[in-house]
């Protein structure tokens, strides 16, 4: 019993540490979003994304995923593919980028709280995401014909 109790307390202590950061962070994010900072970030990123073959429509899901997480980014990209705003190849480049670098704020905070250095938590993900996406962009042939990817556009 004492082992379970000890683990429980350990967990609660950790949870408290995280809550002290997560709640203020969510307030800051909400304020930033309400003030249109996300669109500004998107504009700022336009040039570097051009290099890996992403136009504004392709860059948007990457920015969304980077800030809010892969689920949100995927939601946007699925919708973009369905409405023809991005090509399948672009979707592949976006998918590569956001699978490596997403939820950069939340994921970073978790380990930052535990003592890992901020720069090491963010920079390698962004750099490798960029490099891998560039490789995919250069090496993937155009994917216009359905090739068994079965992009599910029903939800």
């Amino acid at each position: 019993m004492s082992v379970l109790w000890e683990g429980f307390l350990q967990g609660l202590k950790g949870l408290w540490t995280i809550a002290l950061i997560v709640i203020p962070l969510m307030i800051v994010l909400e304020v930033a979003e309400s003030n249109g900072l996300l669109q500004k970030l998107n504009r700022l990123m336009a040039r570097p994304f051009k290099i890996i073959g992403l136009g504004e429509e392709g860059a948007f899901p990457v920015v969304i995923a980077g800030v809010f997480g892969i689920t949100y980014g995927s939601g946007v990209i699925i919708n973009h593919v369905r409405t023809g705003k991005v090509t399948r190849k672009e979707a592949r480049v976006v998918g590569t980028f956001m699978s490596i670098a997403h939820a950069l704020i939340e994921d970073t905070i978790i380990f930052w709280v535990l003592g890992a250095p901020l720069l090491l938590l963010v920079a390698p993900r962004l750099i490798l995401a960029y490099v891998m996406s560039y490789l995919v962009y250069r090496l993937t042939p155009e994917l216009d014909s359905p090739d068994g990817d079965n992009i599910d556009t029903t939800d």
């Binding site: 379970l4 967990g11 949870l15 995280i18 809550a19 997560v22 969510m26 994010l29 939340e106």
Partner: peptide, 25 residues
């Protein structure tokens, strides 16, 4: 923002606390 933060914290609680218990065991 506070509501989102509290919601996230609750989601965390459901994972962090059981994991800590399992590892303690």
């Amino acid at each position: 923002g506070t509501k989102t933060g509290l919601h996230t914290t609750w989601e965390l609680a459901k994972v962090v606390v059981p994991t800590a218990i399992v590892v303690a065991v």
